[in-house]
Design a binder for these strands. Structure first.
Lengths: 125, 125
DNA sequence: AGAGAATATACCTCAAGAGGAATGTTATTA
DNA sequence: TAATAACATTCCTCTTGAGGTATATTCTCT
Protein backbone atom coordinates (compact mmCIF):
# COMPACT_ATOMS: atom_id res chain seq x y z
CA UNK A 1 0.00 0.00 0.00
CA UNK A 2 1.37 3.36 -1.05
CA UNK A 3 2.38 5.56 1.87
CA UNK A 4 1.16 8.68 0.12
CA UNK A 5 -2.30 7.13 -0.38
CA UNK A 6 -2.51 6.49 3.33
CA UNK A 7 -1.58 10.04 4.20
CA UNK A 8 -4.08 11.39 1.70
CA UNK A 9 -6.74 9.56 3.65
CA UNK A 10 -5.50 11.03 6.89
CA UNK A 11 -5.45 14.66 5.89
CA UNK A 12 -9.10 15.39 6.49
CA UNK A 13 -10.47 16.02 9.93
CA UNK A 14 -13.73 14.14 9.41
CA UNK A 15 -11.90 11.09 8.17
CA UNK A 16 -9.62 11.15 11.18
CA UNK A 17 -12.63 11.22 13.43
CA UNK A 18 -14.13 8.28 11.56
CA UNK A 19 -10.95 6.23 11.88
CA UNK A 20 -10.69 7.13 15.51
CA UNK A 21 -14.17 5.79 16.16
CA UNK A 22 -13.46 2.65 14.18
CA UNK A 23 -10.49 1.89 16.38
CA UNK A 24 -13.05 0.94 19.01
CA UNK A 25 -14.79 -1.52 16.73
CA UNK A 26 -17.14 -1.80 13.74
CA UNK A 27 -19.85 0.81 13.31
CA UNK A 28 -22.68 1.57 10.97
CA UNK A 29 -23.22 4.85 9.18
CA UNK A 30 -25.96 6.06 11.46
CA UNK A 31 -23.62 5.86 14.42
CA UNK A 32 -21.12 8.08 12.68
CA UNK A 33 -23.91 10.54 12.02
CA UNK A 34 -24.95 10.43 15.65
CA UNK A 35 -21.51 10.96 17.06
CA UNK A 36 -19.97 13.30 14.53
CA UNK A 37 -23.14 15.33 14.01
CA UNK A 38 -22.36 15.74 10.36
CA UNK A 39 -24.76 15.42 7.39
CA UNK A 40 -25.26 11.99 5.87
CA UNK A 41 -23.74 12.84 2.48
CA UNK A 42 -20.58 14.05 4.04
CA UNK A 43 -20.06 10.94 6.11
CA UNK A 44 -21.06 8.60 3.33
CA UNK A 45 -18.63 10.22 0.92
CA UNK A 46 -15.75 10.10 3.35
CA UNK A 47 -16.49 6.45 4.06
CA UNK A 48 -16.50 5.81 0.34
CA UNK A 49 -13.18 7.57 0.00
CA UNK A 50 -11.65 5.46 2.74
CA UNK A 51 -13.13 2.27 1.32
CA UNK A 52 -11.79 2.86 -2.18
CA UNK A 53 -8.34 3.23 -0.74
CA UNK A 54 -8.52 0.23 1.53
CA UNK A 55 -8.50 2.06 4.85
CA UNK A 56 -11.85 0.59 5.84
CA UNK A 57 -13.98 -2.39 4.91
CA UNK A 58 -17.74 -2.67 4.94
CA UNK A 59 -20.41 -5.30 4.93
CA UNK A 60 -24.11 -5.00 4.49
CA UNK A 61 -26.26 -6.21 7.33
CA UNK A 62 -29.86 -5.87 6.25
CA UNK A 63 -30.54 -2.20 5.93
CA UNK A 64 -27.27 -1.20 7.55
CA UNK A 65 -23.75 -0.95 6.29
CA UNK A 66 -21.25 -1.96 8.92
CA UNK A 67 -17.86 -0.33 8.53
CA UNK A 68 -14.67 -1.56 10.15
CA UNK A 69 -10.93 -1.31 9.91
CA UNK A 70 -9.46 -3.92 7.56
CA UNK A 71 -9.03 -7.34 9.14
CA UNK A 72 -5.64 -7.71 7.51
CA UNK A 73 -3.56 -4.55 7.36
CA UNK A 74 -0.26 -3.98 5.59
CA UNK A 75 2.50 -2.89 7.90
CA UNK A 76 2.45 0.76 6.83
CA UNK A 77 -1.24 1.03 7.49
CA UNK A 78 -1.11 -0.67 10.87
CA UNK A 79 1.78 1.54 11.90
CA UNK A 80 0.02 4.73 10.91
CA UNK A 81 -3.27 3.77 12.49
CA UNK A 82 -1.42 2.99 15.70
CA UNK A 83 0.33 6.35 15.49
CA UNK A 84 -2.98 8.07 14.94
CA UNK A 85 -4.44 6.36 17.98
CA UNK A 86 -1.49 7.47 20.00
CA UNK A 87 -1.90 11.08 18.89
CA UNK A 88 -5.67 11.04 19.24
CA UNK A 89 -5.35 10.65 22.97
CA UNK A 90 -4.07 14.19 23.22
CA UNK A 91 -6.90 15.71 21.24
CA UNK A 92 -10.12 16.82 22.89
CA UNK A 93 -12.30 16.27 19.83
CA UNK A 94 -11.24 12.68 19.46
CA UNK A 95 -11.69 12.01 23.15
CA UNK A 96 -15.11 13.61 23.09
CA UNK A 97 -16.12 11.49 20.11
CA UNK A 98 -15.21 8.32 21.93
CA UNK A 99 -17.06 9.45 25.03
CA UNK A 100 -20.09 10.25 22.92
CA UNK A 101 -19.91 6.87 21.26
CA UNK A 102 -19.93 5.05 24.57
CA UNK A 103 -22.78 7.16 25.78
CA UNK A 104 -24.93 6.45 22.71
CA UNK A 105 -24.43 2.75 22.80
CA UNK A 106 -22.90 1.44 25.96
CA UNK A 107 -24.00 -2.01 24.91
CA UNK A 108 -22.45 -1.74 21.46
CA UNK A 109 -20.65 -5.04 21.38
CA UNK A 110 -23.45 -6.89 23.13
CA UNK A 111 -26.47 -5.93 21.06
CA UNK A 112 -26.87 -6.99 17.44
CA UNK A 113 -24.63 -5.88 14.54
CA UNK A 114 -23.55 -2.57 15.87
CA UNK A 115 -26.37 -1.55 18.14
CA UNK A 116 -28.20 -0.10 15.18
CA UNK A 117 -31.44 -1.92 15.68
CA UNK A 118 -32.58 0.70 18.15
CA UNK A 119 -30.60 3.52 16.68
CA UNK A 120 -33.20 4.06 14.00
CA UNK A 121 -35.79 5.19 16.46
CA UNK A 122 -33.26 7.19 18.40
CA UNK A 123 -32.27 9.38 15.50
CA UNK A 124 -34.17 12.57 14.88
CA UNK A 125 -33.04 14.22 11.63
CA UNK B 1 0.28 21.32 16.05
CA UNK B 2 -2.80 20.22 14.14
CA UNK B 3 -2.71 16.58 13.14
CA UNK B 4 -4.37 17.31 9.81
CA UNK B 5 -1.68 19.87 8.96
CA UNK B 6 0.97 17.26 9.55
CA UNK B 7 -0.74 14.74 7.32
CA UNK B 8 -1.18 17.35 4.61
CA UNK B 9 2.57 17.72 4.58
CA UNK B 10 3.02 13.98 4.32
CA UNK B 11 0.74 13.35 1.40
CA UNK B 12 3.18 14.24 -1.34
CA UNK B 13 5.84 11.86 -2.50
CA UNK B 14 8.54 14.46 -2.95
CA UNK B 15 7.98 15.83 0.53
CA UNK B 16 8.22 12.35 2.00
CA UNK B 17 11.54 11.88 0.25
CA UNK B 18 12.75 15.21 1.61
CA UNK B 19 11.76 14.33 5.16
CA UNK B 20 13.34 10.93 4.80
CA UNK B 21 16.66 12.51 3.81
CA UNK B 22 16.43 15.01 6.65
CA UNK B 23 16.13 12.19 9.14
CA UNK B 24 19.82 11.61 8.52
CA UNK B 25 20.73 15.19 9.32
CA UNK B 26 20.63 18.76 7.97
CA UNK B 27 21.00 19.31 4.26
CA UNK B 28 21.14 22.17 1.82
CA UNK B 29 18.94 22.57 -1.21
CA UNK B 30 21.56 21.49 -3.71
CA UNK B 31 21.85 18.15 -1.99
CA UNK B 32 18.15 17.56 -2.36
CA UNK B 33 18.48 18.38 -6.03
CA UNK B 34 21.37 15.99 -6.38
CA UNK B 35 19.70 13.09 -4.66
CA UNK B 36 16.12 13.51 -5.75
CA UNK B 37 16.97 14.57 -9.28
CA UNK B 38 14.10 16.99 -9.34
CA UNK B 39 14.08 20.57 -10.67
CA UNK B 40 15.06 23.36 -8.31
CA UNK B 41 11.63 25.05 -8.29
CA UNK B 42 9.92 21.90 -7.27
CA UNK B 43 12.23 21.23 -4.36
CA UNK B 44 12.30 24.83 -3.24
CA UNK B 45 8.53 25.03 -3.21
CA UNK B 46 8.12 21.83 -1.25
CA UNK B 47 10.69 23.00 1.26
CA UNK B 48 8.78 26.26 1.57
CA UNK B 49 5.58 24.34 2.13
CA UNK B 50 7.16 22.26 4.88
CA UNK B 51 8.74 25.30 6.46
CA UNK B 52 5.50 27.29 6.61
CA UNK B 53 3.90 24.42 8.47
CA UNK B 54 6.73 23.86 10.87
CA UNK B 55 7.88 20.48 9.61
CA UNK B 56 11.34 21.78 8.82
CA UNK B 57 13.55 24.65 9.88
CA UNK B 58 16.18 26.43 7.87
CA UNK B 59 19.13 28.67 8.36
CA UNK B 60 21.21 30.58 5.89
CA UNK B 61 24.87 29.73 5.74
CA UNK B 62 26.50 32.07 3.26
CA UNK B 63 25.09 31.19 -0.09
CA UNK B 64 23.44 28.04 1.15
CA UNK B 65 20.23 27.37 2.97
CA UNK B 66 20.57 24.54 5.41
CA UNK B 67 17.35 22.69 6.12
CA UNK B 68 16.76 20.43 9.07
CA UNK B 69 14.03 18.83 11.10
CA UNK B 70 12.84 21.07 13.95
CA UNK B 71 15.03 20.93 17.01
CA UNK B 72 11.99 20.86 19.24
CA UNK B 73 9.08 18.80 17.97
CA UNK B 74 5.59 18.51 19.40
CA UNK B 75 4.63 14.95 20.29
CA UNK B 76 2.38 14.41 17.27
CA UNK B 77 5.10 15.47 14.90
CA UNK B 78 7.79 13.36 16.52
CA UNK B 79 5.48 10.35 16.52
CA UNK B 80 4.61 10.71 12.87
CA UNK B 81 8.16 11.32 11.76
CA UNK B 82 9.20 8.21 13.65
CA UNK B 83 6.40 6.27 12.01
CA UNK B 84 7.48 7.54 8.62
CA UNK B 85 11.03 6.43 9.27
CA UNK B 86 9.77 3.02 10.25
CA UNK B 87 7.74 2.70 7.06
CA UNK B 88 10.46 4.15 4.85
CA UNK B 89 12.65 1.17 5.55
CA UNK B 90 10.35 -1.01 3.48
CA UNK B 91 10.34 1.27 0.49
CA UNK B 92 12.95 0.96 -2.24
CA UNK B 93 12.82 4.62 -3.26
CA UNK B 94 13.54 5.85 0.23
CA UNK B 95 16.33 3.35 0.69
CA UNK B 96 17.83 4.31 -2.65
CA UNK B 97 17.70 7.99 -1.69
CA UNK B 98 19.61 7.36 1.47
CA UNK B 99 22.16 5.27 -0.38
CA UNK B 100 22.55 8.00 -2.94
CA UNK B 101 22.98 10.59 -0.22
CA UNK B 102 25.79 8.65 1.41
CA UNK B 103 27.44 8.15 -1.93
CA UNK B 104 27.37 11.84 -2.79
CA UNK B 105 28.80 13.00 0.48
CA UNK B 106 30.26 10.27 2.59
CA UNK B 107 31.90 12.94 4.67
CA UNK B 108 28.68 14.89 5.18
CA UNK B 109 28.95 15.49 8.91
CA UNK B 110 32.68 16.06 8.80
CA UNK B 111 33.03 18.67 6.07
CA UNK B 112 31.67 22.18 6.48
CA UNK B 113 27.98 23.12 6.76
CA UNK B 114 26.50 20.26 4.83
CA UNK B 115 29.25 19.29 2.45
CA UNK B 116 28.05 21.89 0.02
CA UNK B 117 31.32 23.65 -0.53
CA UNK B 118 32.27 21.18 -3.23
CA UNK B 119 28.77 20.38 -4.30
CA UNK B 120 28.63 23.45 -6.48
CA UNK B 121 31.26 22.20 -8.84
CA UNK B 122 29.84 18.71 -8.80
CA UNK B 123 26.45 19.73 -10.13
CA UNK B 124 25.88 19.92 -13.83
CA UNK B 125 22.43 21.32 -14.65
C1' DA C 1 -46.41 -4.32 -4.88
C1' DG C 2 -45.81 -0.15 -2.24
C1' DA C 3 -43.83 2.62 1.45
C1' DG C 4 -40.24 3.91 4.14
C1' DA C 5 -35.52 3.57 6.21
C1' DA C 6 -30.55 3.51 5.50
C1' DT C 7 -27.07 4.56 2.52
C1' DA C 8 -24.85 5.76 -1.99
C1' DT C 9 -24.14 8.50 -6.16
C1' DA C 10 -24.42 12.38 -9.60
C1' DC C 11 -23.81 16.93 -10.42
C1' DC C 12 -22.25 21.43 -9.27
C1' DT C 13 -19.18 25.04 -7.20
C1' DC C 14 -15.15 26.43 -4.96
C1' DA C 15 -10.49 26.25 -3.01
C1' DA C 16 -6.01 24.18 -2.42
C1' DG C 17 -2.09 22.64 -4.22
C1' DA C 18 1.21 20.49 -7.83
C1' DG C 19 4.27 21.50 -11.65
C1' DG C 20 6.62 24.47 -14.84
C1' DA C 21 8.61 28.96 -17.01
C1' DA C 22 10.28 33.15 -16.00
C1' DT C 23 12.01 36.36 -12.85
C1' DG C 24 13.45 38.12 -8.37
C1' DT C 25 16.54 38.07 -4.18
C1' DT C 26 20.64 37.48 -1.43
C1' DA C 27 25.30 36.58 -0.79
C1' DT C 28 30.00 35.57 -2.64
C1' DT C 29 33.73 36.53 -5.63
C1' DA C 30 36.34 38.66 -9.27
C1' DT D 1 30.60 47.32 -9.03
C1' DA D 2 29.58 43.58 -12.05
C1' DA D 3 28.94 38.73 -12.53
C1' DT D 4 27.57 34.53 -10.82
C1' DA D 5 25.85 30.93 -7.63
C1' DA D 6 22.13 29.33 -4.69
C1' DC D 7 17.48 29.83 -3.67
C1' DA D 8 12.85 31.90 -3.52
C1' DT D 9 8.76 33.78 -5.54
C1' DT D 10 5.30 35.02 -9.06
C1' DC D 11 2.15 33.75 -12.46
C1' DC D 12 -0.28 30.40 -14.99
C1' DT D 13 -2.63 25.84 -15.91
C1' DC D 14 -4.60 21.67 -14.40
C1' DT D 15 -6.23 18.19 -11.16
C1' DT D 16 -8.06 16.69 -6.85
C1' DG D 17 -11.09 16.82 -3.43
C1' DA D 18 -14.50 19.05 -0.03
C1' DG D 19 -19.26 20.26 0.74
C1' DG D 20 -24.01 20.69 -0.60
C1' DT D 21 -28.63 19.57 -3.12
C1' DA D 22 -31.12 16.41 -5.29
C1' DT D 23 -31.81 11.81 -6.63
C1' DA D 24 -30.92 6.89 -6.90
C1' DT D 25 -30.29 2.29 -4.80
C1' DT D 26 -31.05 -1.51 -1.70
C1' DC D 27 -33.46 -3.69 1.95
C1' DT D 28 -37.25 -4.51 5.11
C1' DC D 29 -41.86 -4.61 6.36
C1' DT D 30 -46.73 -4.44 5.57
Amino acid sequence: MELVRIYECLCDHTRLRILNLLSKGPLCVCHFQEVLREPQVKISKHLGYLRERGLVECERQGNWMIYSLPAKQPRELAANLACLQDCAQDDSTFRRDIAQLKKLSPELTESSPCGCITAGTARRR
